[in-house]
Write a protein that binds this DNA or RNA. Structure first.
Lengths: 201, 201
DNA sequence: ACATTTAGTTAACAGTGTTAGCAAAAGTAT
DNA sequence: ATACTTTTGCTAACACTGTTAACTAAATGT
C-alpha cells in the first residue's frame, strides 16, 4: 500500500514547487509581481491546484513570513556557536539580525510590511515567538552574568528588538539599500543598550 | 476674466473632494479598501476624472504620505511652543511622535508601509526632509546647550528616529494597537538617548 | 467490470488600475 | 447669433487580479 505514500510525496513535491517558483518570482521581480496566475504558469499546472495547497494568497504570504522568522532564528543560533561569552553572543545576535535584513531585504520587507496577515497577532505566530525567545535568552544570559536579573527582561527584549528593527527600517527608507555590514551608528546603539544591561544604577 | 479663476477653483474643489472622500474610505475600511472605482462613486464622477488630478493610484498614496509627514511636522512644532528648555522640548517631540502614531495609526502605516512609492528616496521627498530637519534642530539645541556640538548630530538624529519608529513598529506588530500614551519602556529609551546627548565621555 | 474517489481542467465571476475614443457643454471669435 | 475651439466628462474597453463552481478524465477500491 505504498500508493498513498507516493501520492502524498507527489503532493508535497508540488507544494515545494509552488513555494520555490513563487520565491523565484519574488526575487526577480518583487512581491508585487507575484500572482496566482504567474505561479500556475511557472509550475505548469492550472490555477486551482494552488488552492489545494494554500487556502489563498494570504496563506502564501504567511508561509514566507514564518519561513523568514525561521531562517532568522536559525541564523541567530548559528552565529552564537562561533563565539563564547554572553556579551559577545548578544553582539553577534545583533549583527546576525542586521546581516539577515541586508542580505535578504525582500524577505525582511515581506516579514514586516504592513501586510501582516490580519487576525493573527505576534503571539499567535509560533515562528515569531521562537525568534523573540531566542533573543530573550541571550539577553537573559548577559543580565544574569552581571547580576542584573531583577530587570524586566521582556521589556529589555522589546527595546532591543525595537532598536534593531528601527535602524533597519530607517535604512530601508533611505532607498539605497542596507549597507552590508552594521553601520557605526548601529553598533553604537547596540553598545549603549548593552551598557544598560550590564551596569546597575 | 474671472471665468478661468472660477474653473481653477472648481477643479481644486474637486481635487479636495477626491482627497477627503478617499480619506473617509481609508478611515472606515482601511487603505486596502481604497480603489479608483470607490472614489469615483463617492465623488459622484466617472473614473477618468480622477486621473485628471492624480497621475495614478500611487500618486494618491504619495499625497497621503506627504500629508502625513506634514501633519507630523506641524504637530512636532506645535507641542514645542508649550514648553521651555531644549531638553524638555526633545522629550515633547518624542511624545508628539508617539501620539501621532497612536492616534493616526492608519496614516502612520501608509507613511511607513513597505509601499513607499518606488523611485523616490527619502531625500527627494521634501516633506520627509522637513520632518527630519525639525527633529535635527531640537537635537542640535540640546547638544549645543550641553556643549556637545562636536557630536555627529545627523547620526544622532538617525538614532533618535530609529528608536521612535522601532518602538512603534514593534508595538504595531503585536496587534493590540498602540497604547494611547508612551509606554515606560519607550520613555526609558528616550531618556537613555538624551543621556548620550547631554553627557560627554 | 463497475463504482468511487481524486487530480486536474476550463470557464466564469467580481473585482482591480488604466486609457482610448467620443459626446456634450462651455468658452471664444467673427 | 453663428461657427469654431477648447475643456470636461463619460462610456466602454483592455489587461490584469484573486477566487470558485462545475466538469472531465484518470487512478484507485470493491
Amino acid at each position: 500500500m505504498g500508493i498513498s505514500e507516493r501520492k502524498a510525496r507527489q503532493q508535497e513535491e508540488l507544494r515545494q514547487k509552488i513555494i520555490q517558483q513563487s520565491w523565484s518570482i519574488i526575487q526577480k521581480e518583487g512581491w508585487q509581481a507575484l500572482s496566482i496566475r504567474r505561479i500556475a504558469e511557472a509550475i505548469e499546472y492550472s490555477i486551482p491546484v494552488i488552492y489545494k495547497h494554500f487556502q489563498n494568497k494570504e496563506a502564501i504570504q504567511e508561509y514566507f513570513i514564518k519561513d523568514g522568522f525561521d531562517k532568522l532564528t536559525v541564523e541567530m543560533l548559528r552565529v552564537q556557536q562561533a563565539v563564547v561569552g554572553s556579551e559577545a553572543r548578544l553582539r553577534q545576535l545583533a549583527y546576525a539580525y542586521w546581516t539577515f535584513a541586508a542580505s535578504h531585504t525582500e524577505h525582511y520587507r515581506i516579514m514586516f510590511g504592513l501586510g501582516m496577515p490580519a487576525c493573527e497577532t505576534v503571539n499567535s505566530i509560533s515562528e515569531i515567538k521562537q525568534m523573540s525567545e531566542t533573543m530573550y535568552r541571550v539577553i537573559e544570559d548577559v543580565a544574569i552574568e552581571y547580576q542584573n536579573g531583577h530587570l524586566d527582561l521582556h521589556l529589555k527584549m522589546k527595546t532591543f528588538w525595537s532598536i534593531l528593527h528601527g535602524f533597519i527600517s530607517i535604512e530601508l527608507l533611505s532607498g539605497n539599500g542596507i549597507p552590508d555590514g552594521p553601520t557605526p551608528v548601529f553598533t553604537d546603539a547596540i553598545e549603549s543598550f548593552m551598557f544598560t544591561l550590564i551596569h546597575k544604577r
